[in-house]
Nucleic acid binder design. Structure first.
Lengths: 216, 216
DNA sequence: CATAAAAAAATACGATCGTATAGTCTGTTG
DNA sequence: CAACAGACTATACGATCGTATTTTTTTATG
């Protein structure tokens, strides 16, 4: 009987077990981030990954476990895309560090507009505290918070940020950046302007930097 | 047979149709805000409102309709609690208007910490654009945006806020305030500090005002 | 009191979903 | 070739949920 015929589109890309597994992970991360835990069905994930529903359950034992592994995958992507500035502000090379905060903000914004899963997953669970939020706090957020605070403090010591409470400043900065991503679908519909465009991001960051640099 | 016996706790509060209906609305708003649309079941809402599941369907025809009416109810609460400053910055009475922005921010923060439903419902739909988000945009957000922008501009004309792009400033302010509420369950677990305490809110607002007032 | 409308409750049904289980296919190893 | 393990599939079951329908109870009105 048929020797080849496996799938319709004649997968030119390799379709081994490993690629299937990560395809499921990527699809699950997307759908979990968009539809939430309850709004996501394993069948939908399987379809999006172009695999059978049973295979999802074979590679990941339960929906809960798939969710956890998806988030690990998302955070790995994020940490791989945003490591450059983290805690590595040059101590006193003193060429032009003034642009560093601006560059970091822009990089965070553009990446998050492109891969908003981590933010969506974060606030989904924050809005309904439970075991899943506790797990995320222990696994990711404690480290994220301390890294962020350390970055703020380094920047402050270099005179790049006003000397106010570091944790407050972290929240204000995070808020100003992340809110922009979260509210983007609304802004787009209200203002009729694409908030993830380069101009929009640059203008917003300019305004933000203006507020920060004129304050002491 | 029993003349009275209706319910266990001998409801001292009147339990007529109107109070039942609004009890369902309040419960639905809470649960929708916490668990999302998909994560909310009509049975759970009924239990929380202490009514039978069938009664939920009697008063509100469908889950979709219950969701809409819940949100109308939430927005009505919000507009009833936060009308004082909206668009009503005194034109030139000029006693001490400098505290007005600070007071407004504090009022928004304390109310939203107390009744975070509107924010949660807002971002739930923003994270998965669809017909429900479109409905919210047309019904609420267009007005919210224009009101907010108008407020910023009035404050700017009085010299209470730096003269930067009004919409950007609105987003930065909204972000700094709303993010604080959204991230509160995480902050509470990471920092071991209640973010909705008066001191925490005041300190945060002080920092924010410091950034705003030293900038021009 | 009679009667009709409104309010509330009980029941049932079809669909979806997570998961458990058994079966199939393929490649490898001894 | 035999045996086995890993990858994959098919199927079924129990539970939950939204909704439709029917029935009972309460309230209002003449």
């Amino acid at each position: 009987m048929r020797t080849v015929d496996r799938n319709a589109p004649a997968t030119t890309t390799e379709d081994d077990a490993l690629s299937r597994r990560s395809r499921i992970l990527a699809a699950a991360a997307d759908i979990f981030a968009q539809q939430g835990f309850d709004g996501t069905s394993l069948g939908t994930v399987a379809n999006a990954a172009n695999v059978k529903k049973s295979l999802v359950q074979y590679h990941f034992k339960s929906k809960e476990n798939l969710w956890q592994e998806s988030i690990h995958w998302v955070w790995k992507q994020r940490d791989h895309a945003l490591p450059k500035y983290l805690l590595k502000l040059p101590s006193a090379d003193s060429n032009d560090n003034s642009q560093m905060v601006r560059d970091l903000c822009r990089q965070i914004l553009t990446f998050t507009f492109d891969q908003p899963q981590w933010v969506k997953l974060m606030f989904q669970e924050a809005s309904k505290p439970g075991p899943r939020l506790d797990w995320m706090v222990d696994t990711f957020f404690k480290k994220d918070f301390s890294d962020g605070k350390a970055m703020i403090e380094v920047a402050q010591q270099q005179g790049l940020l006003p000397h106010v409470n570091a944790m407050d400043l972290l929240h204000i900065l995070s808020g100003a950046l992340i809110y922009l991503v979260n509210v983007a679908p609304i802004s787009e519909r209200v203002l009729g302007e694409k908030p993830n465009s380069t101009q929009y991001i640059d203008r917003h960051i300019n305004t933000l930097m203006h507020l920060l640099q004129n304050a002491r």
